[in-house]
């Protein structure tokens, strides 16, 4: 395995290639060029790079103006400063305008780490997912972030690309190529379906190994696109297992777990256990300590899987009686 890299690294690698491949691609930044990995693009294509300073609301508007004049802007900052600080600008200037704006954000989730709760976006998927016209992508690793960045450029309309700060091992492969809106099954199982996104995909795989050692056969599906949700693949998958665990580096309110719960409640009601932060802010510590404290480990996914299986048995027993 190569040296672990982060989602933001994959974004930066793709963006600098896009500079060469597509003359319409431009980038904007709000004083975080190195941190969001836009620096290489800025150095190489300075005429297509716009520093906007610490003014994220203005940056989203400016990016939208560029998009309305037929460019493909990548507006970059941290997740909290885009999805949350500039929420209404994203709604009006990007989404309601159907502007072809790509919003690439780093430092999403708890693994933002020592900076603390102020910088740890744990509610951004919920607010971005609720917006009409918006596409929401949460890549699992550097490679998938690279592919998602390239795919976003070809995709028409606003995209929210949620990138992490912390390096994680590569968990995706080429057997099932990345496509926006198509979930990627990494492991097929029969007992429980684990749907994960972002850095939790790696942990879901670790959990499935632990579960296997205990005789439980879990599926692991990487749902990198939260919106549009791959409804067909999710329902097909759940029909084989009849119980579900979701895992995400986000609040259990309104994110991947919320999206899948909404879908299954209407189309195929089965037990769903959600792994994520429990309606709380984070705090300062190392990423690993935070994931442990806030219940985002492989062990938490194992526990949730067993709980889901237990509930499934209860449901079946009720049906039989």
């Amino acid at each position: 395995m190569t040296k672990a890299k982060s989602g933001r690294d994959g974004f930066g690698r793709a963006l600098v290639e896009l500079g060469e491949e597509n003359q319409k691609v431009v980038a904007l930044c709000a004083d975080l060029a190195e941190s969001v990995r836009v620096e290489a693009f800025a150095n190489k294509y300075s005429e297509r790079y716009f520093q906007i300073g610490i003014s994220e609301q203005d940056m989203i508007g400016t990016a939208s103006g560029l998009a309305l004049a037929n460019y493909i802007p990548f507006a970059t900052t941290y997740a909290v400063f885009a999805a949350q600080r500039a929420n209404e600008q994203i709604r009006l200037a990007a989404c309601y305008n159907q502007a072809n704006v790509k919003i690439a954000v780093s430092h999403a989730g708890l693994t933002c780490g020592e900076d603390g709760a102020t910088h740890q976006a744990l509610e951004d998927i919920a607010s971005m997912r609720a917006m009409p016209e918006m596409t929401v992508i949460v890549p699992a690793d550097e490679k998938e972030a690279y592919e998602a960045t390239k795919a976003s450029t070809e995709w028409i309309g606003p995209v929210y690309l949620r990138l992490g700060r912390t390096p994680v091992p590569i968990v995706t492969n080429d057997t099932d190529p990345f496509q926006i809106g198509k979930a990627r099954t990494i492991k097929k199982g029969t007992d429980v379906s684990i749907f994960a996104c972002g850095i939790m995909v790696e942990r879901a795989l670790q959990a499935s190994e632990q579960l296997a050692s205990e005789g439980i056969n879990a599926s692991v599906i990487n749902v990198h696109t939260i919106k549009p949700l791959d409804k067909e693949a999710i329902i097909n998958e759940v029909q084989h297992t009849d119980c579900v665990v979701t895992a995400e580096e986000h609040s259990i309110i309104g994110g991947l777990g919320g999206a899948i719960s909404e879908l299954l409640a209407e189309e195929y009601p089965v037990p769903v256990r959600k792994v994520g932060t429990q309606d709380t802010f984070g705090e300062s510590a190392s990423p690993e300590e935070l994931l442990e404290k806030y219940g985002l480990t492989a062990a938490n996914i194992v526990t949730a899987s067993k709980k889901a299986l237990e509930q499934k048995e209860q449901f079946l027993a009720k049906e039989r009686s």
């Binding site: 431009v26 005429e47 297509r48 716009f50 609301q57 203005d58 940056m59 989203i60 508007g61 400016t62 990016a63 939208s64 103006g65 560029l66 998009a67 309305l68 004049a69 037929n70 460019y71 802007p73 600008q89 009006l92 200037a93």
Partner: peptide
């Protein structure tokens, strides 16, 4: 409060073109 930001983006696009 949003129009000038959008206008700025359009002006940057004009410059590029």
């Amino acid at each position: 409060g949003q129009g000038l930001s959008i206008a700025n983006g359009m002006a940057l696009a004009n410059r590029l073109r």
